[in-house]
Design a binder for these strands. Structure first.
Lengths: 120, 120
DNA sequence: AGCAAGATTAAGTTGACACTTATGTAAGCA
DNA sequence: TGCTTACATAAGTGTCAACTTAATCTTGCT
């Protein structure tokens, strides 16, 4: 999921993914769509997308046909839905944050003798 | 939207955003949560998040309180829903892709006829 | 005024990454 | 077998971004 998010941060890769969203396409056809970039660049982008499981590759003779893997995008979407509000993780984080604050407060207190801290 | 995606590609920023998801937090408290990274690093991340409209900043005395801007995340989610299937853009892209393919085919054809040159 | 706390900005380093050209590899065909 | 097409990988380069430490700015307090 981390890889998918990172892969989609690149506009060019989003464009590629959209190109192969509704129908599979050979690498050449994809590259032809981007005249301002070399063919290997597209190949590398496709490799990243494949590594993030955002596209699948199928071989047919000398050609390689790419197609979007919609499931991964769906997963990414539900990740964005859940990540921030996921109960357990949020509780754990809150606890850790509180602990870190206390640790910090104690450290300051012990070290600096003249230091004062504000009330809540 | 582009900025938001790019901002969230960084795991640390996702963690920060989750920290301030349900309640605002002063920068120090946020930084204390990440012991392995310096305070300025967190400040810079916060700046990026603010630039992407993913958090809002409120000042209170010397402190700066941050809070997640959930609307932007919601927009990002619907962007992920629509981008690939958006009718007009998809049609436009398909047309351009077809055109590029034809251009390419013509070029190949000409070359095969004996003319050894590409592009205009 | 002068000092301390909270936080950002400045400046510099490093690693990742999007690109380039050049080279390699696999499949189809004369 | 050798050529051509379709594509990937290798190697190198420039840019950007995440981090560091040091310096600055702002506010509150006495």
């Amino acid at each position: 999921m981390d890889a998918a998010l990172k892969a989609l941060a690149e506009p060019r890769r989003r464009a590629i993914l959209r190109l192969v969203w509704s129908h599979e396409l050979p690498a050449t056809d994809i590259a032809d769509r981007f005249r301002d970039v070399s063919r290997p660049a597209i190949s590398q982008h496709l490799s990243v997308l494949k590594g993030a499981n955002l596209v699948t590759e199928r071989r047919d003779g000398t050609r390689r046909l790419y197609r979007a893997n919609r499931d991964t995008v769906a997963e990414l979407r539900s990740f964005l839905d859940d990540y921030w509000t996921s109960g357990l993780e949020r509780l754990r984080d809150a606890a850790e944050a509180a602990e870190a604050r206390q640790r910090q407060r104690r450290a300051r207190h012990a070290r600096g003798r003249g230091t004062r801290r504000k009330g809540t």
